[in-house]
Amino acid sequence: MSDRIEVKKTYKLFIGGAFPRSESGRTYEVNDHKGGFLANPALASRKDLRDAVVIARTAHISWAKATAYNRGQILYRIAEMLEGRADQFASEISALDGISIKEALKEVHLSVDRLVWYAGWSDKLSALVGATNPVSGPYFNFSIPEPMGVVGAIATEKNSLLGFIDAIAPIIVSGNSVIVLASERAPLPAMSFAEVLATSDLPPGVCNILTGSKSELAPWFASHMDIDGLDITGVEHDLRADVKVAGAENLKRIHSFADGQSPARILSFMEIKTTWHPIGV
C-alpha cells in the first residue's frame, strides 16, 4: 500500500439528472457500523422535494411515451452498469452494514438480477392485466394499464441497495417517474447508484433521489398534490396512519410491500384505462 491520500466522494442529491446539494445547505453525518465517519450526505428539504416533483412531472410525460421495448432496454442497461461496479457497491454495503464483502456482493448480485427481472416486465404488463371486454353491444372495448404519473417512494432501511432497487425499478418500468427517499441510515449505495443511472440512458428526471430525514420528509411526500402514488414500505408503522391521512387530500394511491419481487409492485402504481368505440360500417 502506498501513502497516497484517497480522493473521497461528496455525496449529493440526484435531481433531474444533475447532482445538486440540498438548497437548504444542510447535511447529516453517516457512519459505518462501528460508528466511524463515512460521509456527510445532503439533508434534503421540502423545497428539494418540490423541485424534484416539478422535474419528475415533465420527465414522466416523455418517459411514458417511450416504447415498452425501449424502457425495458434502459432498465436492462441499468443492470449492466451496476454489474460492472459490483465491487464498489459491495465495499459500501460492507462498511455500512458490517457484513463481509462476500455477503455484500451477494446483495449486489441480487440487485442486478432484480433489475433484470423488472426490465423484462415492461412489454408484458398489458398481456397480464389488459383485456378486450365482450360488452353487450356493437362496441370494441379494451382495457390497458397505464403509468400513474409521478410516484414517491420511501425506501426501506433493511437492505440499502436491494431495498432501493425495489423502491425504484417497479415504479419506473411502466413509465412513471419517481422521487425516492433513500435509506436514512445507509444512503450511500443509493447515492452511488445515481452514478449508475447517470450512465444508463435513463432520461434525466425519471429517477430522482433524495437523502435525509424520513420523519421530516414523508409527510411532505404524502401531502404533495402533484404526487399521484406513494410507496411507504420504508415508513415506520406508527407513522403510516398520519401519512395516509395526509395523502387522502389528493386521494394518493398509497401502498407498502413485503420483501421480494412481484408484479403487484408495478401494477399498484398503474391505472387501468378502458376505451369504447362503436363498430359499424
Binding site: M148, D228, L251, R253, K273, T274, P278
Partner: peptide, 30 residues
C-alpha cells in the same frame, strides 16, 4: 379511466369502470 370514442355513457359488467386522480381508487366491472 374510461374513454368513450364516438360514443358516450356506455356501461357493461365486463368493462372496468373507475377513475384516475381524485375520481377514486380502483375499478368496478370486469
Amino acid at each position: 379511466g374510461v374513454i368513450w370514442a364516438n360514443t358516450f355513457n356506455k356501461f357493461d359488467p365486463t368493462s372496468p369502470f373507475g377513475g384516475y386522480k381524485e375520481s377514486g381508487w380502483g375499478r368496478e366491472g370486469g
